[in-house]
Design a protein around this nucleic acid. Sequence first.
DNA 1: GTAGGGTTAG
Length: 713
Amino acid sequence: MAATLSTALDVYFTGHNSDPKRTNFFTKPLWQNPNRKLTIYCKSSKSPPKGTPNLEESGTKNPSLSEQLRPLTRTTISNTTKEESPLLSKPKSIWVNPTKPKRSVLALQRQKRSSYSYNPRVRDLRGFAYKLNASGISEGDFLAALEEMPHPPTGENALLILNSLRPWPKTQLFFNWIKTQNLFPMETIFYNVTMKSLRFGRQFQLVEDLAHEMMNDGIEMDNITYSTIITCARKCNLSHKSVEWFEQMYKTGLMPDEVTYSAILDVYARLGKVEEVLSLYERGRASGWKPDAITFCVLGKMFGEAGDYDGIRYVLQEMKSLDVQPNLVVYNTLLEAMGKAGKPGFARSLFEEMIESGIYPNEKTLTALVKIYGKSRWAQDALELWERMRQSRWPMDFTLYNTLLNMCADLGLVEEAERLFEDMKQSDHCRPDSWSYTAMLNIYGSGGNVEKAMALFEEMPELGTELTVMGCTCVIQCLGKARKFDDLVRVFGISIERGVKSDDRLCGCLLSAVSLCSEGRDENKVLACLQQANPKLVGFVQLLLEERTSFEDVKEEFKGLISNATTEARRPFCNCLIDICRNRNLREKAHELLYLGTLYGLYPGLHNKTGDDWCLDVRSLSVGAAQTALEEWMGTLSRIIQTEETLPDSFSAQTGTGTHKFSQGLANSFASHVKKLAAPFRQSAEKVGCFVATREDLVSWVKSRVPSPAITA
DNA sequence: GTAGGGTTAG
């Protein structure tokens, strides 16, 4: 197969420029580009059925879309940055050169389904299919039962049965049986129905086998066939296959209709290929296509995943200008997207707009909104919404209940969560499940309520609720902070017995517990747990604690350790390791680790310099790491002061405000460390969570204490 | 699940 659409577009959009930023085809639509030369798209004059690939000719007479677009790869398009919002400055999509009509990329008429007259045998046949669906029936019994079909297996009757069979192995058996009976020609619809059933079972290989069979037997593949293949591949995480078959369709001379087209847009959207999606979208629009709500869902979801607020606004604007009314699914998708783009206020207005337009929210709508308010710490809005949900008797399901519990965890609403959890226990349909227990363990764990967390931990197996690794992590963290190391070891052992597979986050919590242990028995017990979960991490701790370990050894091992850890776990690992060193008075090693962490990008934005202010931002650091960073900073500053380089007017250190109810209070420990060093930082009156010092105070402090081992470390 | 496309939980 020729270059795929994605490779062609990759070249096109990146061109000679390696900058992957968004190109500005919105400000200058492709079809207004004078350099544009699209290969004339031509249908094969010969007559294999439309849609059936002719393997010898494919790629020559009917160019794929990527081949049509290939000349564009030579076009230079300037880049714009995201901040310029090219989406919003997009002019109307008007074809300006009528002498060279633009080649269409999709058929404007949706494929018509064949209409069938009412089959009076429908009840009998369905009933027969349901019997075949009964579980436990063997292949032999199944085939034997087919002899007792209540009506003769005409095409119409067979189709009705085929449509009612599930799961896929039965559909497949029946499909193969009708083929061997040879009673009527196998039309496209039989393949389409069978493929759909296979798709439910995520059997892409079987779907593809059927597609090849159609090609070999000269059976027409239509838009329904292709869209089923494309979505099946996508659902099986085989997006390259989706793209291949989409390309294949163009080569056979079959134009995608809007369903197939939006299916492929979804494939690209899920691959995060925003530029390709927008190019296809614009090409479709230029062909006279009026996208429907489903297409806008695809676009909205894509922009949400990218956290692209401008993109979401673009979708809303396009719907408005095309007079497409958003439906419930569109609203749900856009709400979710607004959350991902970090726009709780816009999500709130969109929700109100939806209600005003007369659309009732469903569970998914409310789940999206509750999640947004929780994550944004919008307690008042969250509680008001919750009250409104109760009063309006809006629908609830498991996900919504559990999202409400997670919202309570985010906002520190312990009593509300307990009430809700009790409601769930009393309910008929939404008894607390593994997610609910995990949420409650999170609430008790992060709130330091050891007794209640342990009670739930004990209760779970009695009710047959599965313990998740996250639930286990919450309990371990809670016990570590409470310094109940014997219980911690017991909980770890039980969790592993209960089938919890430890991950990097759990290891991070164990490592954090190690940092809280005093040297000796407790430490050894916790390290023994960690040894089971991640022996390399234990090896590294031991290396650190050995006196004679050189910086080079630490550096080498640290690199291996960090590159094996998941991205989210890397900084916590480094923070805990620094804490462990500081607790053992291995201050130099703590500084080495902070240096290495910075070197490997674990602390981006730690230092921020503007002309009149130098700022140390320790908000993502542990207590020990923050102290180390402060010392390091003071050391650097004293060297700068001694060499009499230019300094700003003020210095500041950000510890954060600790808005979260359960946060550790980094500010307090930072304040006491500043005091210990007698450094001239004061809590800022205007900015909470910010410590400030003037240049004069800092310079005189540095001069008064030089030389000091602490600041030259 | 009515031959094909879109939305909820660390």
